[in-house]
């Protein structure tokens, strides 16, 4: 290889290199001008943005959403990890289920039944929120038990004393409904007595509730020869009748067990949307009554949400003596 040849080649190489550098520089230069609105952590809900553009007021410049301070630790993580989670996320979005469980401190089985219920709820795919209500006690193991379950729960306590069991249970349910109302939590509300046992598929079905949903429930008792089924009689998902376990009913009473129906929580905090009058003063203190009344009001809104024709029993209730 001759010297000239070599130097020629060198010049060639240099030229090439400089060209590359310049290209890269220009590329970087223009990348810099690309809009920075691509935040690392957030997506902007553009439709919402558009919708509110007129009414919105510029408050503060928003250079970039996210975490200020040092992102060292954040940027440390390899991009791949972020992307991985990103792609993983493509899973179905589910409706929230809000399970309300009143408890009774006189029930010797409370602790055990709470654990059993927690086991079931832990297996329900999220999102699920469990609202457990309890009368305020000096010492109670309810908090300890709930804490160990890993279920997302809210533990509400109340001070009032009750002598009547039914009134107390209703008060507890009301308290939970008040919580939902106050926080405007959205989801399908279900009252779960601790003595209930569930098929997991129940929770899949209940998610399809729009306004009101109902399903059959089997009451099991030890000494009777018979078992009792309460709930709707359906034609596909249309409710056409009810299985009644007694023929005399107060108008105030539901035709079914309280665990036999569920409803969309938004009727509590946004009743107008569903065509209900907002709470009258009389019912203001009693959300449960309101829900029951709303349930009565219009049966066309009730859907049987269990499997085909509401024929599959997915809830059992243990009912020992009578």
């Amino acid at each position: 290889m001759g010297v000239t040849e070599r130097s020629k080649k060198r010049v060639h190489l240099w030229k090439k290199a400089v060209l590359h550098f310049l290209l890269c520089f220009v590329m970087g230069f223009f990348t810099g001008f690309a809009p920075t609105g691509k935040p690392t952590f957030t997506r902007v809900d553009s439709s919402a943005e558009k919708q509110y553009n007129n009414s919105m007021v510029e408050l503060a410049p928003r250079p970039m959403l996210g975490v200020t301070g040092n992102n060292r630790s954040l940027s440390e993580t390899p991009e791949s990890a972020v992307e991985e989670t990103e792609s993983e996320i493509e899973i179905e979005e589910r409706k929230q289920i809000i399970v309300i469980s009143p408890t009774n401190d006189k029930d010797p089985l409370r602790g055990v039944l709470l654990r059993r219920m927690a086991d079931t709820l832990k297996l329900v795919p999220p999102p699920l929120l469990w609202i457990v209500v309890e009368s305020k006690m000096e010492s109670s193991d309810v908090s300890d038990i709930l804490r160990s379950t890993g279920v997302m729960y809210r533990h509400l306590v109340f001070m009032e004393n009750f002598t009547d069991h039914t009134t107390e249970m209703d008060h507890q349910r009301n308290l939970a409904l008040k919580h939902i109302e106050h926080h405007r939590l959205s989801g399908i509300v279900h009252f779960a007595a601790l003595s209930n046992v569930y098929h997991l598929s129940f929770f899949d079905h209940i998610r399809s509730t729009e306004t009101f949903g109902t399903w059959p429930l089997a009451k099991l008792s030890t000494k009777r020869k018979k078992m009792i089924i309460e709930g709707p009689v359906c034609q596909s998902s249309q409710v056409i009748g009810w299985h009644l376990n007694k023929l005399k009913m107060d108008t105030d009473e539901l035709p079914i067990h309280i665990s036999g129906f569920g409803f969309n929580s938004s009727i509590l905090w946004d009743p107008e949307r569903w065509g209900y009058l907002p709470f009258a003063d009389a019912t203001k203190q009693n959300s449960l009554k309101f829900v029951k009344q709303a349930f009565f009001e219009d049966e066309s809104k009730i859907r049987g949400v269990a499997s085909e024709d509401c024929s599959k029993v997915n809830i059992w209730q243990l009912h020992l003596s009578s």
Partner: peptide
């Protein structure tokens, strides 16, 4: 502190949910 905690601008409070759910789990565990 930046490694232990998380700093969110006051103006970004409306996006807290987005911010917190976008943190890779590895970072949270660390």
């Amino acid at each position: 502190w930046e490694e232990l905690g998380l700093f969110v601008d006051e103006k970004d409070v409306p996006n807290l949910d987005t911010i917190l759910t976008s943190i890779p789990p590895e970072v949270i565990l660390r």
